[in-house]
Amino acid sequence: MPQTMKINVTVNGVAYEREVEPRLLLSDFIRHELGLTGTHVGCEHGVCGACTILFDGLAVRSCLMFAVQADGHEIVTVEGLAPDSEHMHPLQEAFWEAHGLQCGFCTPGFLMTLKPFLEQNPDPTEEEIREAISGNLCRCTGYQHIVDAVKLAADKMKEAAS
């Protein structure tokens, strides 16, 4: 039997305790152990950004971490973004309204990258937006509508805050 370790992780506010092998990637833990399949897996070597999650509030690639490293830490995935089942997060609304997605595979990674970015930088320039999403690949949109969606989301978030 391979070595397993007990870990305690909080994901989207829910505490989980699981036995895992050390080699289990955090992305696979989130998808296969917890069934939260909103976190997508693209390249599995840190290039595409599809698996981006929040780890203690910071955007990181979950394919470049092991689940055992998350023991005692707090994670937010795209499933934890919306405030409730009736409403979407302003970022999600903006992506919808500004056509910030086509096939949607990359979208969770973009959203999780952009949430802390807009919280820290509520009024970003286009250049700052493009730099913020430089670690996320989208093969459909050509990025222009994503940039538009981020500007729209920034406006929505500012409006909600005022």
Partner: peptide, 12 residues
């Protein structure tokens, strides 16, 4: 620093 990889990589 801003030239080193992407924001997600620099967080880790």
């Amino acid at each position: 620093m801003p030239l080193i990889a992407h924001p997600q990589i620099r967080n880790r």
